[in-house]
Amino acid sequence: MSDSPDPDPGRLYDSRLKDLEDLKEEALHGLRESDDLREIKIHSITGRVKERGSFLEKIERKKYRDPMEDTEDLVGLRVVCLFTDDLPKLAKIIHDEFDVLDVEDKVSGADVASFGYMSQHYICRLRPEFHGRRYDRIKGRKFEIQCRTLLMDAWANLSHHLAYKGESSIPQDLRRDFHALSGLLYVADRQFQSLLSAARRSQDEAVQDVADAFQEGGDRPLDLSSMQAYLDRNLPGRMKTNPAHVSELVEEFAAVGILSIRQLDEKLSKGLSKALHVESTGYDFSQVGVVRTAVRVSDEGYAEFVRRKYPSAVEL
């Protein structure tokens, strides 16, 4: 969407600021409401309209003839995910939700020394089939979406604070440390992805291990994977709990010596009827709630632990 030439770019910016803010909100809404986004671990989705001074500086530096059309990042969105494998999934969502005009991939094939500048950039418009007063003023305008992992974003922000825009601006005596730290974060980013993949494999293995423990008289140490597999096997109709709360329960049991699936199953069996009775008096227990209540009944050591940790907990 090209605006009529205006000899005063600042006045042109001011006249279009409301449209730019509306475009930012509409683009954010389109991303956040995507059903597929729920399958990705997202740290943050943010948007901004380029500040007036930054806009004027850029068009002067770039010698733009049509400032509003040529400045493709007047509206910018940033999506920060947790894992590198989420970046291709974000790419698909962006192509599904918007009209993508250009893609700049600064991740695939980039040098490790460039870690601080890694991201994927998409120049987009709202899809042309959108009609109505809400869209007609803004759907032809370009906006940019940047996608990064959390560690890419952290390093980019630190680099920005140091004001190093590239290799040449880094003092010679700092370059080795700068590149070494960039490499460490690059390795950490890849290791987080490897850890996630290993955790998923552990969860799959735990499901079979827990089943074997009951069929063959075996056992397995309690950890997040085995605890979740146990809950899903023995309390399938119950509401699942945030994995962080499941992990917290594992830590609580470890503190009082409940360390294996077999031990947990014995404690749950002894206290389950009382836990269900407590629930019938007006509670609606999740998987973790049932287990925590049952073990409080059957294990005095854990009951005392709960009294100390949660002083306001209802006495059983």
Results as ranks from 00 to 15, higher is better:
17 L>P: 05
32 R>E: 09
19 D>K: 02
158 L>G: 10
314 V>Y: 00
308 R>Q: 14
131 H>F: 10
306 V>F: 09
54 S>E: 13
35 D>N: 15
136 D>N: 06
74 L>Q: 15
298 S>V: 04
43 H>A: 05
230 Y>F: 08
1 M>V: 11
231 L>I: 06
105 D>E: 12
97 E>I: 06
214 F>D: 14
68 M>K: 03
309 K>G: 02
295 V>K: 03
200 R>Q: 06
134 R>W: 12
270 K>A: 09
180 A>K: 08
191 Q>N: 10
12 L>F: 02
253 F>A: 03
9 P>Q: 14
129 E>Q: 15
152 M>C: 08
194 S>P: 06
147 C>S: 08
13 Y>D: 12
123 I>L: 02
263 Q>K: 00
202 S>M: 12
314 V>N: 04
262 R>F: 06
187 V>G: 00
34 S>N: 06
27 A>H: 01
53 G>H: 12
162 L>A: 15
275 A>T: 07
236 P>R: 15
289 G>I: 09
213 A>I: 05
278 V>A: 07
69 E>Q: 14
95 H>F: 13
136 D>C: 01
212 D>G: 05
46 T>I: 11
163 A>S: 15
231 L>E: 11
58 K>N: 08
83 F>P: 01
125 R>P: 03
315 E>G: 03
114 S>Y: 12
308 R>S: 06
193 Q>S: 12
5 P>E: 00
123 I>C: 13
177 D>F: 04
284 D>C: 06
202 S>F: 01
74 L>W: 11
223 D>A: 13
164 Y>P: 04
286 S>P: 12
313 A>C: 10
155 W>E: 05
298 S>F: 04
267 K>F: 15
192 F>V: 07
151 L>C: 04
194 S>F: 13
15 S>L: 11
226 S>D: 02
45 I>S: 04
219 D>E: 09
80 V>W: 08
313 A>Q: 14
